[in-house]
């Protein structure tokens, strides 16, 4: 017979049960990943092509406006490559954060009727986005190869950068998702927030052009570290280790804070959705 399930008002007992549930519901995680991916491409005519088109069009537009017209410096990289190196990780980050922010509301029908650890939903969103990222990343590598800027370090160090990106996305997404369950204002604020965050990430400009003091503030944003690292990997095959470790620490901190905040509100979510 299975072990007993405990439903308790006591916080410690609740946490113990939660950790057991995470393990018991591991298959549901994969089911959600599968569902999200399948549903995303089910009724689109272009399907997976969107994943390539999106960062390509965005980088093209940036390259034209900021590179050609405004003549923004590009750290010695070809203009298109400079922008693609930023839009591929940034797009995945922005999409996962917005999707996670909406995820509690979007799955309200499930959450108000069935129990499962709610964190599985945003978790599956972040994990499922790795597919999109991989496609965009392959495109980036192809372009780098073609332009003679490809380095093996790109392949070796991407997992680390991806880890930072995923931690940060999940952390922020969890917090916003839990908030949006209670205050629907969040839903309207998220697109605006993502725009501000994009400006706070060196997507359309090189971080190196900012004064030292501003850079220090900028790199509190882990995505700033990630984007800068990709660019320097393409340019020199090396990256600023201290900077990346700093981003990793902040990313993990964001994840921990997001998880804590989400957990503190998870139990009441069905009552307020």
């Amino acid at each position: 017979m299975n072990a007993a399930t405990i439903i308790s008002a006591d916080q410690r007992e609740r946490l113990r049960q939660f950790l057991r549930d995470l393990w018991d519901y591991r298959e549901l995680f994969w089911t959600f990943v599968e569902r999200d991916i399948k549903v995303r491409y089910k009724q689109t005519a272009l399907g997976v092509i969107w994943v390539i088109l999106q960062p390509l069009l965005m980088s093209g537009a940036f390259a034209l406006i900021f590179g050609k017209i405004a003549r923004m410096p590009t750290d010695g990289l070809p203009i298109l490559l400079f922008y693609l190196a930023a839009t591929v990780p940034w797009n995945t980050f922005a999409t996962t954060v917005s999707q996670s922010a909406m995820s509690m509301e979007a799955n309200a029908g499930l959450i108000t009727k069935i129990y499962f650890p709610r964190v599985v939903i945003p978790g599956a969103i972040v994990f499922g986005s790795l597919l999109d990222f991989t496609i965009g990343w392959a495109l980036l590598n192809g372009l780098a190869l073609w332009m003679g800027h490809w380095r093996w370090q790109m392949v070796a160090l991407t997992p680390l950068l991806l880890l930072i990106q995923s931690c940060a996305a999940l952390g922020v997404g969890l917090a916003l998702g839990a908030l949006n369950a209670q205050y629907r204002d969040v839903k309207h604020a998220v697109p605006f927030l993502m725009q501000v965050l994009m400006l706070a990430t060196p997507v359309i400009y090189p971080a190196s052009r900012l004064p030292e003091v501003v850079q220090r503030v900028l790199f509190l944003n882990p995505m700033a570290g990630v984007v800068t690292a990709y660019r320097s990997l393409l340019e020199t095959g090396a990256m600023d280790t201290a900077l990346v470790l700093n981003s990793l620490a902040i990313g993990i901190l964001l994840l921990a804070a997001g998880l804590w905040f989400f957990r503190s509100r998870e139990a009441r979510m069905a009552d307020i959705l």
Binding site: M1, N2, A3, A4, T5, I6, I7, S8, A9, D10, E13, R14, I111, T112, K113, I114, Y115, A267, R268, A270, D271
Partner: peptide, 14 residues
């Protein structure tokens, strides 16, 4: 069904 948590007490089921 664990949709909402109790304020007091506990349940154990198998």
């Amino acid at each position: 069904s664990r949709i909402t948590p109790p304020t007091a007490g506990r349940i154990e089921y198998r």
